[in-house]
C-alpha cells in the first residue's frame, strides 16, 4: 500500500494542475491555502511537476507551469484537465460529516449525498455503501435550526436577537449580538459573538438559545476576538482578579474524568477516591451547573461565595422535591 504521505502528495498534485488550469493567474498564496500547503513547499512541488509528463518526456510532453509576479499559470496540462473522481473514502468522509454535523434541512443533505453517489464509479459506490453503515455521528438534538439561521446571519453580517437561557440568572433574557462564528466542540454548537448588552465577546451554547431572530441591521467586520475561544462558560469580568473555583470530587472514575478533561496538573488527589480540581474559568453560575452535572459526585470547595450560591440553588431545587 502506498504510504499515507505519498498518497497525500499524489492526490494534491492531481488536483493542483487542473485547479491552476481553471484559475489561470491564481496568486501563489491562495493556491497554497487551497491546497493547505506552506508556500515554500508549494514552490518545490511546482518545480517537481515540470518533470512530470508522458513518455518520451520531450519538453512538449511535460507539464508546463510558471510563476510570474506571484501568480501561477499553466501552459501545458498534459490532460490533467480535471481532478480524479471522488474515491469511496472521500465520499464516505463527506457523508459522515454531512449526516452528523450538517445543520439545515435534511432534504438538502439527502439530495447532496444523492448527487455524490451518482458521481461515484460502480466499484467505489459498492465500497461506499458498505462502509456507510459503519460510521455514525449522533447528532445533537434540536440545534440544527438555530445553527442554520446563525450561519446565514454570520455570512450576511446581520445582528441577531437571541432569547437565551442564561444559567447565571436561571431565566431567558433577550440578547442582541453580532455573530462571529459557529464552533463545534464537545458534541455541541457554540456561537461566538459580540454581545451588545455586555459590550464584550461572549460564547453562547446553541441548544440554550430558545429562539433567534435575524434583524435588518448589518455590521462591519468585527475586530479580532478579544480573548481566545472559551467554550463553555462565560469569560470572567475584565480586570478583576478572582479566586478560581474549585470542585471537590469523590470516586476514582470522576477523578480520572477530571484529569482527562482538565489535565492532570489541575487535579489534586488526596487519595485514590478523593481529590479536587481547580477550574480556569470564573466562579460563576456555570460552575454551579457544572458541579450539579456530576449528580452528587462533586461539590464546590471554594471560593466561599460560590459555595453559598450553590447552596441557594440546591435549596430552591430541593423545594421541588419536598
Amino acid at each position: 500500500m502506498a504510504s499515507p504521505d505519498l498518497r497525500e502528495r499524489l492526490r494534491r498534485l492531481l488536483l493542483l494542475v487542473p485547479y491552476v488550469a481553471h484559475h489561470q493567474g491564481v496568486p501563489l498564496e491562495d493556491l497554497a491555502a487551497f491546497l493547505q500547503l506552506p508556500a515554500e513547499e508549494l514552490v518545490g512541488e511546482l518545480d517537481f511537476l515540470l518533470m512530470v509528463g508522458q513518455p518520451p518526456f520531450a519538453p512538449d510532453d511535460c507539464v508546463d507551469l510558471r510563476v510570474e509576479d506571484g501568480k501561477v499559470y499553466v501552459e501545458l496540462d498534459q490532460a490533467f484537465e480535471r481532478p480524479p473522481r471522488l474515491t469511496a473514502l472521500e465520499a464516505l468522509a463527506l457523508a459522515a460529516a454531512a449526516r452528523g454535523m450538517a445543520e439545515g434541512d435534511d432534504g438538502a443533505i439527502a439530495r447532496a449525498l444523492g448527487r455524490i453517489e451518482a458521481a461515484l464509479p460502480p466499484q467505489a459506490l459498492r465500497l461506499y455503501r458498505d462502509l456507510l453503515g459503519r460510521f455514525a455521528v449522533a447528532r445533537p438534538p434540536g440545534e440544527a435550526k438555530a445553527a442554520a439561521l446563525l450561519r446565514e446571519a454570520i455570512a450576511e453580517r446581520r445582528e441577531v436577537e437571541l432569547d437565551y437561557w442564561a444559567e447565571s440568572r436561571g431565566e431567558v433574557t433577550v440578547r442582541p449580538v453580532r455573530p462571529r462564528e459557529l464552533r463545534w466542540a464537545q458534541g455541541h454548537f457554540y456561537l461566538s459573538a459580540f454581545c451588545l448588552t455586555r459590550g464584550d465577546d461572549r460564547s453562547f451554547r446553541v441548544d440554550r438559545i430558545r429562539s433567534a431572530r435575524t434583524t435588518s441591521r448589518t455590521f462591519e467586520p468585527l475586530p479580532p476576538e478579544r480573548r481566545g475561544p472559551r467554550v463553555p462558560g462565560e469569560p470572567p469580568p475584565p480586570g478583576k482578579e478572582q479566586e478560581r473555583p474549585r470542585l471537590r470530587l469523590r470516586g476514582g472514575s470522576v477523578l480520572r474524568y477530571a484529569e482527562e478533561r482538565f489535565g492532570a496538573a489541575a487535579v489534586e488527589r488526596e487519595g485514590r477516591e478523593v481529590g479536587s480540581v481547580t477550574l480556569s474559568g470564573p466562579a460563576d453560575a456555570w460552575t454551579v451547573s457544572f458541579m450539579l452535572s456530576f449528580a452528587g459526585a462533586a461539590e464546590i470547595a471554594g471560593p466561599p461565595e460560590l459555595s453559598e450560591a450553590a447552596r441557594e440553588r440546591i435549596e430552591k431545587t430541593l423545594d421541588r422535591y419536598r
Binding site: L94, A97, A98, G100, M101, E103, G104, A108, A112
Partner: peptide, 13 residues
Amino acid sequence: DELAVLYAAGASA
C-alpha cells in the same frame, strides 16, 4: 443550498 450544507458540515468536522 446543497453545497452550503456539505461545506458547513465539512468545516465543522
